[in-house]
Design a protein around this nucleic acid. Sequence first.
DNA 1: CGACGGGACGC
DNA 2: CGACGGGACGC
Length: 465
Amino acid sequence: MEEYPAKQVTENLDDPPNSRLFVVTSRSITEDELRESFSVFGDIQGVWVVKDKQTKESKGISYVKFAKSSQACLAMEEMHGKVLMEATKPIKVFIAQSRSSTRHRDVEDEELTRIFVMIPKTFSEEDLKNTFKEYGDIEYCVIIKNKFTGESKGLGYVRYYKPSQAALAIENCDKTYRAILAEPRSKAATTEEYSGGGARGDYTGGAESMNLYTFPMGDPGSYQGMDHRSGDFTRCLMMSTRAALTQEQIFALFDLIPGMEYCELQRDAYGMSKGHAMIRYGNLGSAVYAKEKLNGFEYPPGNRLVVNYVDDGEDRSSPVSRMAMQFVATQMISSVWNGPSTSQVMKPPGFSAVSSVSRIQTDVNLPPPKKLAPPDSKAKERLFVVFSPSPLPPDVLEDVFCRFGSLIEVHLVPGRKVGYMKYADKQCADEAMAALHGHVVNGVKMKVMLADPPREESHKRPRTY
DNA sequence: CGACGGGACGC
DNA sequence: CGACGGGACGC
């Protein structure tokens, strides 16, 4: 990166985060060749080939700095495993450790594919998915909820399949979501030594001795993102991995679930793993079970496997097969919640279907519910609502206040008996106020007024008088 | 009466 | 296995 003043270079290496690549190549690969092959992915700010001090020969290590993390991630995804020149080995590409970091582990996809966002409390996981799917395919969404009341805490996780997708979301989503990369869930985990080295072959043995019931899948949170639609279950699975796994390892892993018919690692023209394997089971139950047990499983530890259903071309539309799949799904969910020993206890199919019984009692003649305005809409008017004797739950308030149209968000002030209703349209807000002020909902009397303008950004110096 | 911004997952 | 240069300069 000699074309930049040195001070600027060292200061920019980690800015923005995860915008620099660590590239392992044959020693014959030059800076020009790297620049040439990586420049299609974005704005390269510098290329540095590490060379031996004395001999000036390349050590087979290079750094490529991009302007954006999404560009670096895309380049990593596309170039990892590629052969740059005839008769040289395929290159390895990783996001470089930040210069200040002392750690020596590769940066895993696990750390680059999940984002942490702040969202309106009214957001469902479906809303979250719909908001963030424009940046790439989402593996799952989870909203953090109060365990007792089920109320959203206004925080969520979105897991993408690829680092570039998460990076695009962070770079481009509305600032109000405050999207950042999520810290990996296991903080001090992965302590045991996997120095990554020659121990790869041992993991097959490890897998065989593993107890399926003790897989680290026990947190119900990860199931909230599971897709329960019956149409998504198939006998065919696709597994993605970024660590190099052998055909034998993958076979052994998926063969732990009885009924595997077929398992093949996909390879590119050089015989290098493309990081995908196709697995098929002889029956749907086995496939569902394998997916739930192995998706997210770390094998080897630190390398998170992604397992998904792929369309196997079977007709899943008949009522009989739909019901069969619903049955399997319900059984799965039940066994997850209750543990394997009680998996016989099942809820009837369709149990979790929405029961939209009206839960509103009021002295107002309410119009029917209307759709919410997009969460990123600009608020044209806010209502200030005072509740007596106690505040109404947010879902009830949303149901009531949305009926005049353009409602963006319900905000209750924690610990107080007041709240704010954000509207994208002034007239809708005024209608809501006119209709609801002084009225009673579920025994709670409401004052509905125009809100004072929001407090200014509090980053100013405190007043000194 | 009654006023408004922050951040973490049942490991 | 495969991890960090050379050269610079505004309180």
